[in-house]
Design a protein around this nucleic acid. Sequence first.
DNA 1: AATTTTTACCCAAACGTTTGCGTAAACATT
DNA 2: AATGTTTACGCAAACGTTTGGGTAAAAATT
Lengths: 349, 349
Amino acid sequence: MTLKEIASLAGVSPSTVSRVINHPGSKAASREVENKIWQIIRETGYIPDASARNLKLRSVLAQNQARQKAIGCILARTHTSDPFFSKVTRGLEREALRNGYTVKYIFSYEDLRNPDIQEAIQQTKVEGVALLGRPDSKMRSFLKTNYKKIIYAGLNNIDSEFDQITCNAYLASKTAVSYLAELGHTHIAYLGERKNEIRYRGYLDAISQLALPLNRERIIDIHLSAEDGYRAAAKLLSSTRDVTALFCANDLTAIGAMKAAKESGCRIPEELSVIGIDDIETCQYTTPMLTTIHIPMEDMGIMTAKILIDRIETGKRIPMKVELPFRLIRRGSCAAPPSKPNHPPQAME
Amino acid sequence: MTLKEIASLAGVSPSTVSRVINHPGSKAASREVENKIWQIIRETGYIPDASARNLKLRSVLAQNQARQKAIGCILARTHTSDPFFSKVTRGLEREALRNGYTVKYIFSYEDLRNPDIQEAIQQTKVEGVALLGRPDSKMRSFLKTNYKKIIYAGLNNIDSEFDQITCNAYLASKTAVSYLAELGHTHIAYLGERKNEIRYRGYLDAISQLALPLNRERIIDIHLSAEDGYRAAAKLLSSTRDVTALFCANDLTAIGAMKAAKESGCRIPEELSVIGIDDIETCQYTTPMLTTIHIPMEDMGIMTAKILIDRIETGKRIPMKVELPFRLIRRGSCAAPPSKPNHPPQAME
DNA sequence: AATTTTTACCCAAACGTTTGCGTAAACATT
DNA sequence: AATGTTTACGCAAACGTTTGGGTAAAAATT
């Protein structure tokens, strides 16, 4: 079905049909004609061809009004299965849909060298993009040349020109460490990423402000996955037993770490406290349940959509960095440390 | 940048540029000219306009060769965060990419009434679609009218005209139940969906073939989420204590159920065995680790892509239903039932 | 009744691309 | 030298749409 065909069915010219479709209710056509056209459109299930429309509109309106009513969501492939991102995208989609926008996903920006992907990105026409996951500089410049409206959503503080929807992960980390300290812990390990990681800085600052001992061995640089958390904790616990608490940069890591701890015969929370960040669903299904910092992931998605759409519709950009509140969720994985060192140096073993 | 501009920069006509782009290396242009054109294209970062190209190609080649090099992936919203689908899509994407295809995601078909979504679906030009999640009849007819090449990937046996990539969930269920029976269990509950669910039928048939007692109370119709699994198990265990094993229709459900069991003071696997289906990552991070039926989720995605792309490229359809092998993964959540009834009727309490 | 205004519609050009057809030049064959 | 063949390229039409610029007929104003 084409505009032309609709036109001939209705016995009018294509232009009339076009005007009716794009300016319904205007005086462009008589009542009768307009009704007839809509009826035919309904009967035939006609939907205007996007390619043709775009082609024309882009030139006529110079990208001003070429409404796609779609926003893009750029996501690192590695993160696809991270519950954090599922939650954020859920909020994003919900809010977008409520405003008549659809979301187009563009995955795996680490494959940017792949020309197929480049082309696909180039071709998915969206009016703005939500950026999830930490972009490297190459990615940032690519984005800037390709999109005008970009909003970053996530926990990383990317000091960039993009608007950001975040939680204060720095403060969240300090909160987590402080909480462990309050419980009486002094030997607190860090499991997570180090480079450019604001959570790592939060950990460091908390440790120094609380005047706790800092030890390189207790800082482990890993990717944020359960697998890595498991391996890191296993290694850590086999080499040293003076650690009484693990601060993990996210829940996935924490869950992996808990498994390793239990396997090495370490009771949680009696002998080892573990805390994570995010509050993903799985936290509630581990034994014990994982104490964590709740990040309002879905709200982050919602805010991202709201602001993006606002920028799209008003055309105005008020640069901003939105910080959503986090909060500590006390569950079962943290407690006071054992009164004496877990394993008196030589006594056991 | 447009073809025309490239052409004038190169001092040739648009047609020459077009031919060079679409038939590189052919004798359409002289060596010099061709090189020059490519160089200019590289310098300017020109990418052909998708709209214009589609518009033209669709007519010229009559949907025969209108290459998008893209496949669609339609996904039920409710399942977006289900690890099962993350895994399948990961495989799908990997394989697609290896063949130069990109994947476009089209979410939430239960919102089909939403005209925005309908339009979005209509407009995402793909050469075939992978369908994940169980489609209702409305969805099926919508798909059939909109797409020629559709492959369903998942555990449900949708007796339909689509090609299917599945695991034999019926047999998988029987395997799970048989395994529990082998361990000595006789009172085995089912937690999962009932209507049209092949896993439910597998459970039923296994029970009857093994001549185990069937009891309505032990069959609980729930959605496949951890939340529902938790609630169902909590309710079940509070009302009856003769159940010694839980067959859960997927791991999420099983994980929820395990939590409820532990909270009600039921030790796993000593007093209660739990088995799931899927083998999602989380299975390895529960206590005890969850025994389950491994479904090759990533392979399912890979096969889906392979077959879809084959159909796209050859234009031929060999109707097929591919069954991938599953296997039982013995972990810690299943054991022989307690020799006597868990809780002798009145004795305890 | 003659005029202006409004209504209701059509024509044609343009968006960026692809391709059938045409053709001028270069080369090869007599 | 004249013909045929190949090479290298341009012309123009078409894809489905939108819109400025019409215009003929109807309605309103004199």
